[in-house]
């Protein structure tokens, strides 16, 4: 039996003829087309609204609402001042985070997939927001992904924004916590050696 495997796409590994910005442009087109994987969702504002629009029971909708609120607290946009937040989301549209250290917009509603069975404990109910600048019939996710209306009172959103948990909002406090050992040991060898083996 042959012991040598296949290499099917040599061009992926060719670097020379690819000019950098072009490569970036191509990869962002690919990314854009991957992420354009859209999915139909309902956007609901309250447990009552959720019961009315979706096939979920009131109890399920209440659970979903609590989940969405917790997600909003964890992942929502953060601002240092109430004024900064209001500038984006409007007056009276922001509140102080429960930790008290920043200001966040109220969630405008949350997404319920129209394609999935939403009763499992793993179901995602990601919050959406309404920036002032956006047109009336649309929302955005915590990370700024668009959620646009379709004709039938439903919305479309990127699949991963519906089904995947958004990342925790981060403020980086410090960098450079890794790499010190390599720096001290390369001072010994004087040349740029591999840290592999």
């Amino acid at each position: 039996m042959q012991k040598r495997g296949q290499i099917s796409n040599l061009s992926r590994f060719r670097k020379y003829r690819v000019i950098k910005p072009l490569a970036l442009a191509i990869s962002s087109i690919i990314l854009a087309s991957c992420s354009s994987n859209q999915e139909e969702v309902y956007v609901v504002e309250t447990p009552e609204d959720c019961t009315y629009r979706t096939s979920m029971s009131y109890e399920q909708c209440e659970v979903a609402y609590k989940k969405a609120l917790a997600e909003a607290e964890r992942t929502g946009p953060r601002y240092d001042s109430a004024a900064d937040c209001a500038a984006e989301f409007g007056n009276e549209q922001c509140h102080q985070s429960s930790s008290g250290s920043f200001f966040m917009p109220f969630m405008a509603g949350w997404m319920v997939s129209s394609m999935m069975n939403n009763s499992s404990r793993q179901s995602m109910f990601n919050p959406v927001y309404k920036p002032q600048a956006d047109r009336s019939n649309s929302f955005t996710t915590a990370t700024g992904r668009p959620v646009n209306s379709t004709a039938l009172g439903k919305f479309t959103a990127p699949s991963d924004a519906v089904r995947k948990q958004a990342p925790t909002a981060n403020t980086t406090l410090r960098r450079g916590g890794f790499g010190a050992m390599a720096a001290s040991k390369s001072a010994w060898s004087g040349s740029s050696k591999s840290w592999g083996g």
């Binding site: 925790t168 403020t171 980086t172 410090r174």
Partner: peptide, 23 residues
């Protein structure tokens, strides 16, 4: 990302140079 450029957020997550979490 270079290992030296990895950041640490107040939430205890490792971050990239744009503060996105490194999961």
């Amino acid at each position: 990302i270079f290992i030296e450029d990895i950041g640490l957020s107040e939430q205890g997550q490792f971050t990239d140079l744009d503060d996105n979490p490194i999961e």
